[in-house]
Structure formats: C-alpha cells, structure tokens
Amino acid sequence: MTDAHPPLRSYGRLKTRAIKPRQAALMESLLPTLRPPAGPFDPRMLKPDAAEVWLEIGFGGGEHMAAQAQRRPDILLLGAEPFQNGVASALRHIDEQALTNVCVHDGDARELMAQMPAASVDRAFILFPDPWPKARHNKRRLVQAETVAELARLLKPGARLRFASDWANYVDWSLGRFLKNPAFRWTAAEAGDWRTAPGDHITTRYEEKRLGDCAPVFLDFVRVD
C-alpha cells in the first residue's frame, strides 16, 4: 500500500560546514532538553504560565528568536529550523542568555505545526525565508496556500503574523497568498507600514547583508474571527 502521507521534504542545504566544538556539544546536551514532544501536543503544557505562545518558522541563526524570548520572558517561543548550522547557532544564543522559554524543533516547521492543536498560537514570524527566486523553484517556497491554511488553523482569532523578505517577487507572492485566505487581514494603511521595520523588529546579521533585490519589506497580518 502506498503511503498517503510521504515524509516532508525540506529543500536547500541542511548543513554547510563543520559545527564548532562548543556548539556541537550543545547539540548533544542542550538540544534534547529543548525539543517539543514527539507526536501531538499542546504548547501550553510546556509552559503553563506563559502569557502567549509564539512561533518562529525558519529561525536561521536564532538571533531574532533568542532576542524576542529574552525581551518577553513571559511568553513561550517555539522555533523550527531544518538547517543544522542554524540550530547550532541558536543553541549558543539560548545558552549564553540562559533562556528558559524557548523550544526548538530541529526540522521542518510543517512537522511541528501539524502536531499542535487549532488556535494554540498567539503570534507567528516568517522572516527572510529562502526566496527560491527561479520560477521553476517557486514550488519550493515555504509560503504556499497549504501553509497559509495551516497557519490559519493554528493562530487564535486576533493573533498576529509577520512575514518579511528582501526579494520583491516573494513579497508579492506571499501577500497574494495571504490575502486569498479570508482568515487573514493585512494591517498596512500606507506604504511606510511595510517599508519601515516595525518597532518590535530585531534586525539580524543576515538581514543586514542585504542579499535580496529590494529593501526589506515587512507584512503584518491579523487572524480575523
């Protein structure tokens, strides 16, 4: 019998260089303590006193995730990243800042999302995901109609979602897909709302490299009732 649900495939490189000894040690010692449970789980079980549950999809090197968790120790921040060098970097940030409100899924974010119940997330971030700029690779982009639908399932009414990219075509692509889903409302009222980094945004070294073809664009959405 053919498996109706084949394993998810994460495109791109999962590892590029040798992980530094200290970070490799954290992969062995710290990461197992930060992973969410295998199988279905309610994130509230991980931090019952959390004011909110946040989700960062593709946290890169973990700078933004760690800084937000440090800024808001009252929330639980779930992060997902399949790139092993990024996971190792994030663990260093978590360890150095002694963060106790972060969970790390070292794999595809869609796996993590599928394990959580509906209306269990208060805020989500998709920041500077791989743009896959060639048209033949667009199907590899994280933001697809199916992903948007899954985010609509996960986010509570009134929850916020931020998408950011410095690739113009990916911005247009993502805006179109979010606006096609009636569960999301774009909060922008004028151009400055997407051209200027929001006040609570944390700029990372990756963002500062300006590897895209436009200035960073920030799209904020609200999950409507």
Rank of each mutant, 00 (worst) to 15 (best):
H5Y: 08
H5W: 05
S10H: 11
K15V: 10
T16H: 12
R17C: 04
I19T: 14
R22I: 05
Q23Y: 00
Q23K: 06
L26W: 03
M27R: 12
M27G: 04
L31Y: 06
P32I: 07
T33N: 06
T33E: 04
L34A: 04
P36D: 10
G39Q: 05
P40I: 06
D42V: 14
D42H: 12
R44M: 10
R44P: 09
R44L: 08
M45Q: 15
A50E: 04
A51M: 06
A51H: 07
E56L: 01
I57R: 01
G58N: 00
R71Q: 07
L76Y: 00
L78T: 04
G79R: 01
G79L: 00
A80D: 15
P82E: 08
P82Y: 05
G86R: 01
V87W: 01
S89Q: 05
D95N: 08
E96R: 10
E96Q: 05
Q97I: 00
A98I: 00
T100C: 02
T100D: 03
N101G: 02
V102W: 00
H105D: 12
G107W: 10
D108Q: 03
Q115G: 03
Q115T: 08
M116K: 04
A118K: 09
V121I: 15
F125R: 09
F128W: 08
P129G: 14
P133G: 13
A135W: 15
K139Q: 14
R140G: 08
R140I: 05
L142N: 02
V143Y: 11
Q144C: 09
E146A: 11
T147L: 14
V148L: 03
A149W: 11
E150M: 05
R153P: 12
R153S: 11
G158C: 10
A159I: 12
R160C: 02
R162Y: 05
A164K: 03
D166R: 07
Y170M: 11
W173I: 07
W173K: 12
S174E: 06
G176K: 06
G176Q: 08
F178I: 11
L179E: 15
N181R: 12
A189G: 13
A189I: 13
D193G: 08
W194S: 07
P198G: 06
H201T: 03
I202S: 02
I202M: 01
T203Y: 01
R205A: 09
R205C: 03
Y206R: 09
K209S: 13
K209Y: 07
K209G: 14
R210L: 14
L211C: 09
G212W: 14
A215I: 12
P216D: 05
V217A: 13
D220H: 01
F221I: 07
V224Y: 07
